[in-house]
Structure formats: structure tokens, C-alpha cells
């Protein structure tokens, strides 16, 4: 993975580094808590955790501006937290309560926020890809300079509709960034076993789409790569494919024991490439921040997450009358 690292790190302030640290930690603690609540029976169905991948969405959100759209698959909690949605609303949706982002009717995989331009939360692998291109079409139609971050995994990258979308996005020069979150496993199938060519950033080439690959464990590298992609799209050059190499520590979903990979493999990534450890090291080594400062942040985050969990458990279930609402406008 080291070989693919882009050395694009700009000078960053301690405040900025702390911001990323805080955002990534929030995602990790939130997801750990969600895992715990799942184990306790408060969260049902499927629950796909983002632990290990935090630098991807935090880095790319740092490259976005107001009005930009984002959407992803069912592994979506982090994308909502990163674009500023209240953890309480997200957690309460996971527990299926009335104060959840979708009033408890969407669940872990199906959440949306028009206010934050977060367009799901899609349970069907790769369905979000043409939808992202369509959001970009709407921006282009109205003459806006917004871009759409369309996240999908290395598994989704093999779906036909991805290439249908590539073709039309290139043909119509749609301002969409196709972000391939390559976490090496499509559920239980390693990319070596699923993908005839492992370099997803090259998969737009046939359509004339510029592609790049970046180390997704390094939030500053992701941000820098994101800025290049955003600049490309905003300038009216059409779509961009950005492969972000990352790793998920947990199973595909809560019910996946992840027997398809060795414990050593996971441990190796955790020990050597952890995105949060990496930024922690930068902060402390550079003398920007003391360990005490970081502990303070840890404590704050812990509190936010605990409050979201408490809220998500006490929030009532939706009223039974909600069964028949929101079917049609």
C-alpha cells in the first residue's frame, strides 16, 4: 500500500489536524457504539460499520464546499456524520425510533438529508452510482458549480450500471466524482477473486475519464486528492474516478465473522496503517498537541457518542399511524 501513497501533503495547521482527528474519532467511536447496541439488540437487521475507513470520508469532506452532494451505499453512517448530521438522529435511526433521520422507517442502510445534500444511504449495491450522476446532471442543468461525491465499494465497481454511468457522465461532462472505496473485500470475496483488473482508478479510461488512486488511510493525502478531483469537476471537465485504498476492520456487516481473511492481516493494517493513529502521531510528534489535549478530545467524543446512544434508546418507536405516511406526497 505504501507504494500507492501520494505525497501531496500540504502544510496544515494544528487546528485542521485536530479537526480531522476529532471527526475520524467520532466516526470510530460511533461505529463501536453501534456495534455494541447491535449486540444488545437495540439495532436490528443489517448494520455495516465503517471502522478503518474513516480517513476516506473525512478527507473528501474536507475538499467539499456547501452545496456539494454526497451519496453512498448502505455503509453510510460515517458519511452522514462527516457532512455534519447530528449523531443522535443517525443513531436513533439505527434503533428504529421516531427521532431517527428517517423517522425510523429507513434503518441503517436508508437515510437521507436534503438539508445536507446527503442523498442516501442505498441498499442496492451500485444503485447510487447512476443516481449520483443524475444529481450532477441536475446541478449542470441549473448552471450550478456543485459537484457530487458518489461513493461505492470495490464490489459495486463490478456492476454494469457503473459503466453505464461512466459512459453517460463522460458523454455529458457531468460534474461527478466516482469515489471507489476499495476496502479489498466485496462482502467475503477478495478483490483478487472478483475483479479481473484490480486497479479501479483505471476503469474510467475507456470512457476518457481521468482517474487517480490515493492511500485512503492518510487523511491529508485523501484531502489533497479530493481537491484535485473537485477542481477538475468544477472546472467543467466532466467526471473523475478516484480510487481510495482503504481497509475495513470489521466484517461486512455485524453478522459476518470475516473468516475469509486472517487475523494477522487485519492486525497488520491496524498496527501499521491505522488512519487515526497516523494523525495522532502527526499531532504529537510535531509538538502541535499534547497527549492531554487529545485525551480531552477523546472524552468529548465519548460523551457525544454516549448521548446519541442514550437518545436513540429513549426516543419512542414511531407512532403506528406512521405505517401509512410518506408513501406518496
Amino acid at each position: 500500500m505504501a507504494a500507492t501513497k501520494k505525497k501531496l501533503k500540504p502544510n496544515v495547521s494544528s487546528e485542521e489536524l485536530q479537526k480531522y482527528y476529532r471527526e475520524m474519532l467520532l466516526i470510530r467511536r460511533f461505529e463501536e457504539k453501534a456495534g455494541q447496541l447491535y449486540g444488545m439488540g437495540h439495532i436490528g437487521g443489517f448494520c455495516h460499520l465503517y471502522i478503518g475507513q474513516e480517513a476516506v470520508v473525512v478527507g473528501l469532506e474536507a475538499a467539499a464546499k456547501d452545496g456539494d452532494n454526497r451519496l453512498t451505499s448502505y455503509r453510510d453512517h460515517a458519511h452522514m456524520l462527516a457532512c455534519g448530521l447530528d449523531p443522535k438522529g443517525v443513531m436513533a435511526e439505527l434503533t428504529g425510533r421516531k427521532d431517527g433521520l428517517s423517522k425510523g422507517k429507513g434503518g441503517s442502510m436508508h437515510m437521507f438529508s436534503k438539508e445536507k445534500h446527503f442523498y442516501g444511504g442505498h441498499g442496492i449495491v451500485a444503485a447510487q452510482v447512476p443516481i449520483g450522476a443524475g444529481l450532477a446532471l441536475a446541478n449542470q442543468y441549473r448552471g450550478e458549480d456543485s459537484v457530487t461525491f458518489t461513493y461505492f465499494g470495490d464490489g459495486a465497481a463490478n456492476q454494469g450500471q457503473v459503466y453505464e454511468s461512466f459512459n453517460m457522465a463522460a458523454l455529458w461532462k457531468l460534474p461527478v466524482i466516482f469515489v471507489v472505496e476499495n476496502n479489498r473485500y466485496a462482502m467475503g470475496t477478495s478483490l483478487q477473486r472478483a475483479a479481473s483488473t484490480p486497479d479501479f482508478y483505471t476503469r474510467g479510461e475507456a470512457f476518457g475519464i481521468t482517474g487517480a488512486v490515493v492511500d485512503g488511510m492518510d487523511v491529508l493525502a485523501v484531502k489533497a486528492a479530493g481537491e484535485l478531483a473537485v477542481a477538475h469537476c468544477r472546472a467543467g471537465n466532466g467526471p473523475y474516478v478516484l480510487e481510495v485504498k482503504t481497509y475495513r476492520y470489521r466484517g461486512h456487516s455485524m453478522s459476518d465473522p470475516a473468516r475469509y481473511r486472517s487475523k494477522e492481516e487485519v492486525k497488520k493494517v491496524k498496527d501499521n496503517e491505522d488512519p487515526i493513529d497516523m494523525i495522532k502521531e502527526m499531532l504529537t510528534q510535531g509538538g502541535h498537541t499534547t497527549l492531554d489535549d487529545l485525551k480531552k478530545i477523546d472524552k468529548e467524543i465519548k460523551k457525544i457518542v454516549q448521548e446519541s446512544a442514550d437518545f436513540a434508546i429513549v426516543s419512542p418507536e414511531p407512532d403506528l399511524s406512521e405505517l401509512y405516511t410518506d408513501i406518496l406526497v
Binding site: P130, A133, A138, E164, M168
Partner: peptide, 25 residues
């Protein structure tokens, strides 16, 4: 701009249209 010929790619352009509708069109 408003009468758009698509390639023969129903899955893709239906999805793009849904996205455009989500986006306010």
C-alpha cells in the same frame, strides 16, 4: 438540454433520471 438522447442503457439512464429527480428536476 431538455430533450436528451440517451445511449441504449436503460438501467443507467433510469438511475440518472432518479438522481436528477432527487436533485429537484
Amino acid at each position: 438540454k431538455r430533450i436528451i438522447d440517451t445511449p441504449i442503457t436503460e438501467h443507467g439512464f433510469a438511475g440518472i433520471a432518479v438522481g436528477a429527480a432527487f436533485g429537484g428536476l
